[in-house]
């Protein structure tokens, strides 16, 4: 039973760390990828465009 707790703690400390690093890297790549730039710029401007009516 003691092993079980030690295992969970070890898992938290190792996997948890790598999981977060991996997530951070993935997000950074996704956000910074040059090919996404246009899409994001367009998204930022999209709300300011005047379209008065819902399309449906």
């Amino acid at each position: 039973m003691i092993v079980e707790h030690a295992f969970l703690v070890g898992f938290s400390k190792s996997f948890g760390l790598f999981y977060l690093i991996a997530l951070s890297v993935a997000v950074a790549i996704h956000a910074m990828k040059p090919s996404n730039k246009q899409r994001f710029d367009e998204a930022a401007r999209s709300i300011l465009r005047d379209e008065a009516e819902p399309w449906r």
Binding site: L20, L23, S24, V27, A28, H30, A31, M32, N36, K37, F40, D41, A43, A44, R45, I47, L48
Partner: peptide, 25 residues
């Protein structure tokens, strides 16, 4: 903020990074 200021958000990329950062940190 962008609507009131009449200009798009400075960095959309930064908003995405901060979104995921907040969600998992």
């Amino acid at each position: 903020l962008p609507m009131r200021a009449g200009r798009p958000i400075y960095s959309y990329r930064m908003s995405i990074i901060s979104f995921w950062g907040i969600t998992f940190f």
